[in-house]
């Protein structure tokens, strides 16, 4: 049975699409047949991040409205054999995203795939609710910043009350915290919320910490998910997060700053 994973956050611009692209790629690299679905109807961007924007013919809405088959709409990733992308519609109204339609598409995908990654739009409206409704697990992408943490808390409330699992009284959605754009130097000087601070407030298990990194922008510029850049801290952090998601025990990295000689002598903060 396929596992449905929603990548969500409430707030926009925290790294949901970046995470969806790298996470789905990471799962596929490890041999899981994976599809990543863009739920941001009207403002699709996953196709750009995954460098398939020129190959989009049909989209999720076409499939829901039965104007195209799933097979026609799925785009095969060029770098990874196990990976497929289902883009969102750029022109249609998001109200066409019906619950029955989404359920039918997910059921059909579940026959062929091991992992279904749903890239949620920002906000708590229809697209976001549909992206999380059928989820088995949720990756809550959060920046160490007040508005993002507050919105993540709201989304956790919605996962616990408005999802299929919540409504049918099944085992609740498994929640994972992914802290992105983390800057250990600013944390050590008390300018930025620490991993512990955010964990204390949201009280969900930590899947990973993605450090603030220039390679993330380079990756989206080129349309190559940052996880392919294994040398970069962000890429390595995503690989670790995927491994942890699959059950491996890996110690967290990139949480403390790299100290030079001078800083070590004269103090660059604690931890």
């Amino acid at each position: 049975m396929a596992k449905i994973v929603v990548v969500t956050s409430g707030k926009g611009g925290v790294g949901k699409t970046t995470t969806s692209a790298s996470f789905a790629t990471g799962l596929a690299m490890r041999g899981h047949k994976t599809v990543v679905i863009d739920f941001d109807v009207g403002l699709r961007n996953l196709d750009l991040i995954m460098n398939c924007e020129r190959r989009v013919v049909y989209d999720l809405i076409n499939v829901i409205k039965e104007e195209a088959t799933l097979k026609q709409a799925l785009i095969k990733d060029k770098r990874c054999d196990n990976l497929f992308i289902l883009p969102a519609s750029q022109t249609r109204d998001k109200d066409t995203l019906t619950m029955e339609g989404v359920q039918r598409v997910l059921n059909e995908l579940a026959h062929d795939f091991d992992m279904i990654v749903c890239d949620s739009p920002a906000g708590i409206e229809r697209g976001a609710l549909m992206a999380l409704y059928f989820a088995d697990e949720a990756i809550v992408v959060t920046n160490p910043e007040v508005s993002s943490v507050r919105d993540s808390d709201r989304i956790l409330g919605i996962l616990q009350s408005k999802s299929l699992r919540a409504e049918t009284g099944e085992e609740p959605i498994k929640e994972h915290l992914l802290l992105t754009r983390y800057d250990p130097t600013r944390v050590s000087t008390g300018q930025m919320l620490s991993v512990e601070d955010v964990q204390e407030i949201l009280a969900i298990p930590l899947l990973g910490v993605i450090p603030e990194s220039k390679t993330v922008l380079h990756a989206s510029n080129e349309g190559v998910p940052v996880i392919w850049n294994a040398e970069s801290a962000a890429g390595a952090a995503y690989s670790d997060a995927v491994a942890r998601f699959l059950g491996e025990q890996i110690e967290h990295r990139f949480i403390t700053e790299k100290k030079g000689f001078f800083k070590r002598m004269f103090g660059g903060g604690s931890k």
Binding site: V146, V149, T189, G190, Q191, F266, G267, S270
Partner: peptide, 29 residues
């Protein structure tokens, strides 16, 4: 090792304020 912390402490960060505010608003919501 961190004897300069004494001077740094004057320039206290804002993260603790952020945490406090978040704890209150999140609990209420």
């Amino acid at each position: 090792m961190r004897f300069l912390d004494y001077f740094r402490s004057k320039n206290k960060g804002t993260a603790s304020i952020a945490k406090e505010r978040l704890q209150i608003i999140v609990a209420h919501e």
